[in-house]
C-alpha cells in the first residue's frame, strides 16, 4: 500500500477505528500475553460480546434516523421473561418431551414481543410525534415494569436444557452467538446499503424535510426501523437469557450505555444520516478487547464504567472538533452539519 492509500484509509472514521481496534488488541496482548491470547479467552470473548453487540445494532438503525432507543434493554428483558415464563409456567413439566419444539416456540414468542414493543415505539414516534428520547424512555419503563410485574421482581429459572444452545452452543465449531451476530450484522448491512428502505433511512436521517419532499412515507419507514430495533433487542434478550440460564428484569442494565457508546464510537452520527455497520463491528471488537483485558488486569466494574464513559466523551469531542490536532488536515467529521443541541 502506498502512503497515499493509507492516508486515505485513515481519513475515514472506520479506518481510524480499525487502527484503534488493532492497537487495543496489541496493548492487551502485550499487558497480559499468556492469558489474553489464549484460545480459552478468545472463545469466551466470542461468547460474550454478541449480546451487547446486537443491542448496538438496534441502537445504530434508530440513530441513523436521528433518533435514539432507550428502551432496548427493557425490550430485551421483557422478551426473555415472556419466553422464560412460557417455558416454565405455561408449558411446565411437559417441556422435557418436546424440548426443541417448545424452545423454538418460546423464541418466536420473544421475537413477537420484540416486534410488538418496537411497534409501540414506532407508533409513539411516527404517528404521535413524540421525541424519540421521551417515547423510548417512557416505553422502556413500561416494558421493564411489565417484566417486574410478571415476575414479581425475581429471576425466572428452571429453563429446559435446549435453551442453553443459542447462548453456549457451537455451530461447525464456531460459537452460536458469534454466528448469530455475524448473520444479523450482514443482514443489516445489506438492508442499509442495498435496498430502497436503507436509502430512505439514511436520507431521512440526513435531512427529514428533504425526505418528506421526496415523497418518502416517513411514518411507514420509522415504524419498520423501530420494529427492527425491537426484534434485534429481543434476540439479544434471548442470548442473555440463554447465557444466564434465567431471565430477570434488571439483567444487562449497563448495556444501554454500552450500546450507545459502541454506536457513537463506530462513527454513527447521533443526529442521524451517517453510520456504517463495519464501523459498529470494529467498535464492538475494540470494546470487547478493552473490557476483557481490563478484566484480566483486575480492574473493577466501577472503573470499567468510568473508562467507558470517558471513552464516549473523548470520541464525541474528537469527532466534533474538525481542527483536532491528531487528525490529518482537512478532515471533516461525518455529516459535518451543525445539529441543534439536544
Amino acid at each position: 500500500m502506498t502512503p497515499e492509500r493509507i492516508r486515505g484509509l485513515l481519513v475515514q472514521p472506520e479506518g481510524r477505528l480499525a487502527l484503534i481496534t488493532l492497537l487495543v488488541f496489541l496493548l492487551m496482548a502485550w499487558l497480559t500475553p499468556d492469558r489474553f491470547l489464549s484460545v480459552q479467552n478468545l472463545t469466551s470473548m466470542a461468547f460474550q460480546f454478541p449480546e451487547f453487540a446486537i443491542l448496538a445494532l438496534a441502537m445504530t438503525i434508530v440513530m441513523l434516523t436521528g433518533g435514539i432507543d432507550l428502551s432496548v434493554i427493557g425490550v430485551a428483558n421483557l422478551a426473555a421473561i415472556v419466553a422464560a415464563l412460557l417455558l416454565t409456567q405455561i408449558v411446565g413439566p411437559g417441556v422435557a418431551e418436546h424440548g426443541t419444539f417448545w424452545v423454538v416456540v418460546a423464541m418466536l414468542a420473544a421475537l413477537a414481543v420484540g416486534a410488538l414493543a418496537g411497534l409501540v415505539n414506532g407508533v409513539l414516534v411516527a404517528w404521535l410525534g413524540l421525541p424519540p428520547i421521551l417515547a423510548t424512555l417512557g416505553s422502556g419503563l413500561v416494558f421493564t415494569g411489565f417484566g417486574v410485574a410478571l415476575t414479581g421482581g425475581s429471576a425466572v429459572m428452571g429453563l429446559p436444557a435446549e435453551m442453553a444452545w443459542i447462548g453456549n452452543g457451537r455451530l461447525w465449531g464456531i460459537p452460536v452467538p458469534l454466528v448469530l451476530f455475524a448473520g444479523l450484522a450482514l443482514l443489516l448491512w445489506f438492508v442499509l446499503t442495498h435496498t430502497a428502505f436503507g436509502l430512505k433511512v439514511r436520507m431521512f436521517g440526513a435531512n427529514p424535510l428533504a425526505a418528506r419532499f421526496a415523497a418518502i412515507d416517513i411514518n411507514a419507514m420509522l415504524l419498520r426501523v423501530y420494529v427492527s430495533a425491537g426484534m434485534l433487542s429481543a434476540v439479544a434478550g434471548l442470548l442473555i437469557m440463554s447465557r444466564a440460564n434465567s431471565a430477570k428484569f434488571d439483567y444487562g442494565s449497563s448495556y444501554l450505555l454500552l450500546a450507545i457508546l459502541i454506536a457513537v464510537l463506530g462513527g454513527v452520527n447521533p443526529y442521524g444520516g451517517y453510520g456504517r455497520i463495519i464501523g459498529v463491528v470494529l467498535a464492538v471488537l475494540s470494546m470487547q478487547f478493552l473490557s476483557s483485558g481490563l478484566n484480566m488486569l483486575g480492574v473493577s466494574n466501577f472503573a470499567r464504567e468510568l473508562i467507558w464513559g470517558s471513552l464516549l466523551i473523548l470520541v464525541m469531542v474528537i469527532n466534533a472538533s474538525p481542527n483536532f490536532r491528531i487528525l490529518p488536515r482537512g478532515w471533516q467529521p461525518p455529516g459535518a452539519r451543525q445539529g441543534p443541541p439536544g
Binding site: I68, I133, L257, I260, L261, V264, P270, Y271, S300, F302, A303, R304, E305, L306, I307, W308, G309, S310, L312, I313, M316, V317, A320, S321, Q338, G339, P341, G342
Partner: peptide, 23 residues
C-alpha cells in the same frame, strides 16, 4: 464549549462521575 448532544454527554458523565466516585 464543544456543542455535543446533551443526552449522550450526560449519559457519559453519569458513568464517569459514578465510576470515579466508586473507584
Amino acid at each position: 464549549g464543544f456543542g455535543l448532544p446533551t443526552l449522550i454527554v450526560t449519559l457519559g458523565t453519569l458513568a464517569i462521575f459514578r465510576g470515579f466516585l466508586l473507584t
